[in-house]
Design a protein around this nucleic acid. Structure first.
Lengths: 124, 124
DNA sequence: AAATTATATGCGTCATAACTAATATAAGTC
DNA sequence: GACTTATATTAGTTATGACGCATATAATTT
């Protein structure tokens, strides 16, 4: 099963970049504005070296654009479209996915997924 | 910067789940159909234990639904909406992001991101 | 109920990614 | 050119996640 038969594989690297909470916070701190790294450092309260580390990853994934203005380097989202897509996904998650706090816990009653015998079904 | 000030943080766990290529292949193998685990094993050529491992993670993230039918457990996507969102993101990636093959390599000329001095800009 | 098929789980190992500290580069100011 | 500010990089450490093996559970068939 290669990329041809599963084009979604293209999304893997992007998802990997977006999976890191601190990177999401950086994107959040950017919003629709362009901001210098210093601002991001203050907004996220992350150490400078760590912000720079994550910015590089975001940059190489094409998820932020960087441009120098004098001594500062401003970062911003490349495209409002991206923001819209992420927001629709966010909407889907909040309305459809299980409580995200449960993701890392075992649900004691295994109620998330009932594997008990029932033939009635809505798909397939 | 908590969830209130950055609701995108909710997406972190979902992205983490979607970042794994084999999980994307499993979703791909499912498509819009419901299929038993055996089918997924054959389609992906992954070892059973590995498929089961990934299915659990997908399940707990709410990205697939499971239902038993006799001896088989059928898995399927919970919602066509999800597929649509992922496809729009995929479209964005293919048209806007840098070549994904470059993501894991250092680009030798550093052409991905020009940090050279230029004051002209389109944002901020 | 024994055997078979379908699927899940626990554990150990290995690879990868995040983080820290120290240092380097690059631009601006005096 | 020396000094300061802004940002990036490198190396080392730690944490996390994927995978494989062995085994467990659950339903089906005989």
């Amino acid at each position: 099963m290669n990329r041809k038969s599963c084009p979604a594989l293209l999304l893997g690297p992007v998802f990997k970049v977006l999976a890191e909470p601190n990177r999401l916070r950086i994107l959040c701190a950017l919003g629709t504005e362009c901001r210098p790294v210093t601002d991001i450092i203050h907004a996220t309260a992350l150490p400078q070296t760590n912000v720079s580390f994550h910015l590089r990853i975001l940059r190489e994934a094409g998820l932020v654009r960087a441009e120098r203005r004098g001594a500062f380097i401003y970062y911003c989202l490349p495209d409002p479209e991206l923001l819209a897509i992420l927001q629709s996904l966010q909407l889907w998650v909040t309305s459809n996915a299980p409580s995200p706090d449960l993701l890392n816990r075992e649900d004691p009653n295994n109620e998330n997924v009932s594997l008990s015998n029932r033939r009635a079904n809505s798909c397939g």
